[in-house]
Design a protein around this nucleic acid. Structure first.
Lengths: 251, 251
DNA sequence: CTCAAACTCCGAACGCCGTTCGGTGATAGT
DNA sequence: ACTATCACCGAACGGCGTTCGGAGTTTGAG
């Protein structure tokens, strides 16, 4: 199958394209829905981590044979695309938070960050080869609405959205014990750092040593708000510049 | 094996702890080095993508039996940790670039971004459960040195480093066809967007529609410099504030 | 010089994985 | 009543990481 056909197929799946469904009505009714399968897969991922999500495991969870899943899905890649779209949305869309653009973005980002820390398995499913589903487009649309009255150009708005998204996901990856189940004991950062201290001659890393002596600990705290505020400050400065330019022209 | 012992073991491996090596001298000499294995694994990843890196494949590449690798490495996780540390460094460390802190960071970030686009497989190997190797600490030390005269507190410096790193890696993941080999044809973003246009009723996404009508295309361009500049602007504003505070106190 | 300890190497196997094939049996339109 | 159509799924294929135990090689001790 060509890459193009593949794209089209997954798109059809995500968007529930009738063309991808069988036409006739004969034969026994289906015992499952795609939604049930996706829900079961997500439950396994939440409870035991992404590596535990196998076709066999999901089928067993639903009480059906493994091969049956392939009458609902073309393969695991499609299951993953559906899982990703299913969790793409928080309870509140970005533009629905109160306040100005900055308050909305900050509120949404903190909410999103909490979700990322709770469901780190989502981070391993992203990539440009995945196709956006309805929920992902809903989110993107909402983000763009937040920037509506800022005076940014459309490409700038998009880039800002992508920057915020990239920052959250990147930090999640940096900090998350991504493969672990949700109920595993938290990763022992202190122990890791202690082990490092025993083995490593830190005098080779003077700036790092100074930071540690000052009480800072790499990858130990939650640096999310810091970076978020820097990013928002930067965006705010650009918006102020655009607004000033407009003012000039208006005069 | 406890998580603690496991940590300690990987640390020893990364840092070449003699305690992890056999003590006696009997038996035949070793035919390989860990470095050779890591190099071979990286070559496979570069040429055919991360999924092609299997223990069997790496062993075959080196002309040895698969099981032999396990006399050099405890398992694949350790191979991955070594691969990651081996590519952790660009040609130029952040603090070695010319100019002030901002010029250094921008130069390094653009260089790092180019490396990420060239070697996207590295993005799938990160996580807090991975332990930093010597090269990763060298990089961290260098980044902290860049912030030396900025007046930021040590935790702020660390958070800034982590924010920049998170942004680059996060955007890399958003844009990269991560699993693909380096020589694969580039992902057809235009075709993807075209396929979407056929299937999706964009009137449900007015802000997105407006952006597309204005010529913006989601995830199609290279938004890296935009977000980088916003982040650096935000950090610069903070540094200016800290400098002003100092000035106040000095008077 | 002898020989056993210590070590490297690795074929074969175990239990996973995603996926495919072909048969079975239920359903529904003719 | 019959048959086309479909859902279901046991069994198998070729991959994976890893382990086990035996064969072969080197070295140091006696």
């Amino acid at each position: 199958m060509s890459a193009k056909e593949n794209q089209r197929r997954i798109l059809g799946l995500l968007w529930d394209d009738p063309a991808t469904r069988p036409s006739g009505t004969r034969g026994p009714g289906r015992g499952l829905t795609r939604e049930q399968i996706v829900t079961a897969a997500i439950e396994v991922a939440e409870a035991e981590g992404l590596p535990a999500v196998s076709m066999r495991r999901v089928a067993a969870e639903l009480g059906v044979g493994t091969a049956s899943l392939y009458t609902y899905l073309r393969g695991k890649a499609e299951l993953e695309a559906l899982m990703l779209d299913a969790v793409a949305l928080g309870d509140t869309l970005p533009h629905e938070w109160p306040g100005d653009w900055r308050a909305k973005l900050e509120a949404w980002a903190m909410d999103d960050w909490a979700a990322i820390r709770r469901h780190p398995w989502t981070l391993r499913l992203h990539g440009a080869d995945r196709l956006p589903g309805p929920n992902q487009l809903r989110w993107l649309d909402s983000m763009l609405r937040v920037f509506e009255d800022t005076g940014l150009t459309e490409p700038e708005k998009l880039a800002a959205v992508e920057a915020l998204d990239a920052y959250s996901r990147g930090l999640g990856l940096l900090l998350a014990e991504v493969e672990a189940p949700a109920d595993a004991e938290p990763y022992d950062v202190a122990g890791r750092n202690e082990g490092l201290r025993e083995l490593v001659d830190f005098s080779r890393y003077p700036a790092l040593l100074a930071a540690i002596r000052a009480g800072a600990s790499p990858y130990a705290g939650d640096p999310f708000p810091f970076g978020l505020h820097r990013l928002l400050d930067g965006i705010e400065a650009l918006i102020a510049r655009r607004t000033a330019e407009r003012g000039d022209r208006a005069e």
